[in-house]
Nucleic acid binder design. Structure first.
Ligand SMILES: [Zn+2]
Ligand SMILES: [Zn+2]
Ligand SMILES: [Zn+2]
Ligand SMILES: [Zn+2]
Lengths: 167, 167
DNA sequence: TCTTGACCCCGGAGTGGCTACAGGGTTTTT
DNA sequence: AAAAACCCTGTAGCCACTCCGGGGTCAAGA
């Protein structure tokens, strides 16, 4: 099985497959004489697993941990449960804030119907007013609230070339 | 007003403020004799606007477009409306897929209670089975469906150094 | 006066999870 | 035989920041 066929079978772009190999998520397959990668059924299964986890929006580091746990069948599964719990909590948190967001945007959208000049547009007016007012969550000063900006940054880890450790 | 005070007033990190200036989102302020940036109330207002838009999860390119529209008060506001519509649709789409996701994860979580070896863990079993089966959305072949991976990539635009154009 | 600390400057590299491309080689189809 | 489709490596780009190194500036305290 060459990389294109594996990609077809799993719905994963070949470039992405090579990327997974580069970061150590998918084991490097044997090569044919011409240098082409040759995959077997084990790779297919593993890649399908990865894709399914990604479809559940798990970060690749979590997927890596699950794969490792799969490879050690005698370990306790507590780590699996915790990982899923954490991820689920994360998803639910995002869901909450997205719901708030959608409500705010719908309300904002209602501020303008039809055509005016931008100087009279209710949407722009509301945006400017809200940005100035105190009522908006984005203005509570300090870190006391549990509200976070939708696009939260990632904590930084340093000097990793191979993104995921090899074993 | 120096950069630190502006950051305090708006809740934006000074590094982020410099970043906004670098990409042309916030106009460069005058400098004092020592090279420090000196901001006025106009900057404060603009930055608060930016932050409020970001709190609504708008991409910076959209914020830039809104700022431009604010600066041209005689233009028609149709662009504003379309921009908000598009963004709202985007948010609602993400909300939908997150809801599906949360349901799937909750169901998955229910597969394991208490401790077993990973070889017997219902969660891992389900993940492997789902990845192999045909029932899962992540396996529909081709692009015919309206389902998309949660972390969808952005289309690519080329050779932009200054991320947002200057005017 | 000296030192400590809080600010400020700049440029460059790193984050995740890919995607795109350049510039070559190989295989398959027409 | 030529064209199309596939494969290889390596690098750079996307977003919206964040962090760091290596320096400069300016106040208050010992
Ligand atoms: Zn699946
Ligand atoms: Zn309007
Ligand atoms: Zn706000
Ligand atoms: Zn379990």
């Amino acid at each position: 099985m060459r990389i294109g066929a594996l990609g077809q079978a799993t719905g994963v772009d070949p470039e992405t497959i090579r990327y997974y190999e580069r970061i150590g998520l998918l084991p490097a397959p044997v090569r044919r004489a011409n240098g082409y990668r040759a995959y077997g059924p084990a790779h297919l299964e593993r890649l399908a697993f990865i894709r399914h986890c990604r479809a559940l929006d798990m970060p690749l580091a979590d997927v890596q941990r699950l794969l490792r746990l799969l490879d050690h069948p005698l370990d306790d599964c507590q780590d699996v449960d915790r990982l899923i719990d954490t991820h689920l909590a994360h998803v639910q948190g995002k869901l909450q804030s997205l719901q708030t967001l959608a409500r705010q945007l719908e309300q904002l959208r209602g501020r303008c119907h039809g055509q005016h000049a931008t100087a009279e547009c209710g949407i722009l007016h509301e945006l400017v007013a809200a940005a100035q007012g105190e009522s908006c969550v984005c203005h509570v000063d300090g870190r006391a609230s549990d509200w976070a900006m939708p696009t939260a940054p990632h904590p930084r880890i340093h000097k990793i070339k191979r993104v995921l450790s090899p074993e």
